[in-house]
Amino acid sequence: WKVTVKGVEYTFDNPEEAKKFAEELAKKKGGQIHYKDGEFQVH
């Protein structure tokens, strides 16, 4: 499971962890999460 933040990729074994990480980042940066092709992208 991948989380991509401004072109930087983070990989997680667990989808729950990936989702949590993406949500935290989106909150911090005031961005939005897009889920696409099996990965979370924070913009």
Rank of each mutant, 00 (worst) to 15 (best):
V3C: 04
A26S: 07
T11W: 15
W1Q: 05
V3T: 02
K28M: 13
E9I: 12
H34M: 08
T4W: 06
D37L: 00
F12R: 00
E16R: 08
Y10M: 02
I33D: 06
A18L: 04
G31Y: 11
N14C: 11
K20A: 12
E17W: 02
V8S: 05
V8T: 08
K28N: 12
E39T: 07
F12M: 00
K20I: 11
N14M: 03
P15N: 04
E9Q: 10
D13L: 06
G31E: 06
V5S: 11
E17N: 07
Y10E: 01
V8W: 09
V5H: 15
G31N: 07
I33Y: 04
Q41C: 13
G38Q: 10
Y35D: 04
Y10A: 01
F12K: 00
K27D: 09
V42H: 03
G7P: 01
E39L: 02
L25Q: 12
E39K: 05
N14H: 07
D37K: 02
Y35H: 07
V5R: 01
G7L: 02
N14P: 00
Q32H: 15
Y35P: 05
F21I: 01
K36I: 14
Y35T: 06
E17L: 08
E24I: 08
E9C: 13
E39G: 05
Y10N: 01
K28W: 06
A26T: 09
N14E: 04
E23T: 08
F40E: 04
I33H: 03
A22D: 01
G31L: 12
K20V: 08
H34I: 14
E24Y: 10
A18S: 01
G7H: 02
Y35I: 10
Q41L: 11
L25I: 14
T11L: 15
A26H: 04
E24G: 08
K29N: 15
V3I: 04
G38C: 11
A26R: 07
H43M: 12
K27F: 11
E16A: 11
K2W: 05
K27I: 10
G7R: 01
V42L: 05
K29G: 14
G31H: 07
E24T: 09
G38E: 05
G7Y: 02
I33V: 14
T11E: 10
V42K: 03
K6G: 15
E16V: 11
Q32W: 13
G38T: 04
E17P: 01
K2D: 02
E16G: 09
E23V: 09
K6A: 15
E23P: 00
Y10I: 02
N14T: 13
Y10L: 02
D37T: 01
F40W: 14
K20Q: 12
T4I: 14
E23C: 14
T4S: 09
E23A: 05
K2Y: 05
A22F: 04
G7F: 03
W1K: 05
G31F: 12
G31V: 07
K19H: 10
E17Q: 11
Q32N: 10
T4P: 00
V42A: 03
K6S: 14
E23K: 05
H34A: 07
V5L: 10
L25D: 02
K19Q: 12
N14A: 05
K29C: 15
H34R: 09
W1L: 08
L25K: 03
A22G: 02
E24C: 15
N14W: 03
G38H: 13
K27E: 11
F40H: 03
W1R: 07
E23G: 02
V42Y: 05
K6W: 13
E17K: 07
K36P: 06
K19A: 09
N14Y: 06
A18C: 02
Q41R: 06
D37R: 00
D37A: 01
G7V: 01
E24Q: 10
K29E: 15
E16M: 12
T4M: 06
D13T: 10
N14R: 05
P15A: 13
A22S: 03
K29H: 15
H43A: 08
E39Y: 07
E9W: 02
F12S: 00
T4D: 02
W1T: 11
F12A: 00
F21P: 00
Y10W: 13
F21K: 01
G30T: 05
K19R: 14
G31I: 08
V3H: 00
G7E: 05
V3A: 00
K20H: 11
K6N: 15
V5D: 14
P15T: 03
F21N: 00
Y35F: 12
G7K: 01
A18P: 00
G7D: 09
E24H: 10
Q41H: 14
H34Q: 09
F40Y: 11
V5F: 15
T11M: 14
T11I: 15
F21L: 02
G30L: 05
K20D: 07
G31S: 08
Y10D: 00
T11D: 07
F21Q: 01
K19S: 07
V3E: 02
K20C: 14
A22M: 07
K2N: 03
L25W: 11
D37Q: 02
K6T: 11
T4V: 14
F40L: 05
K19N: 03
T11G: 04
F40Q: 03
E39P: 02
L25M: 13
K27N: 10
A22Q: 03
K27Q: 12
K29V: 15
F12G: 00
K6Q: 14
A26N: 03
V3K: 00
A22V: 07
V8N: 07
A18G: 01
F21S: 00
D37W: 00
E9A: 09
G31W: 14
W1V: 11
I33L: 10
G7N: 08
G38F: 11
K20T: 08
V8I: 12
K2H: 08
F12N: 00
A18Q: 01
K27L: 10
P15R: 15
T11F: 15
D37S: 01
Y35S: 08
P15Q: 14
W1A: 08
Q32K: 13
T4E: 03
F40N: 03
D13A: 09
K2F: 08
E17G: 05
W1H: 09
F12C: 05
D37H: 02
E17H: 07
A22N: 01
E24S: 10
K27S: 12
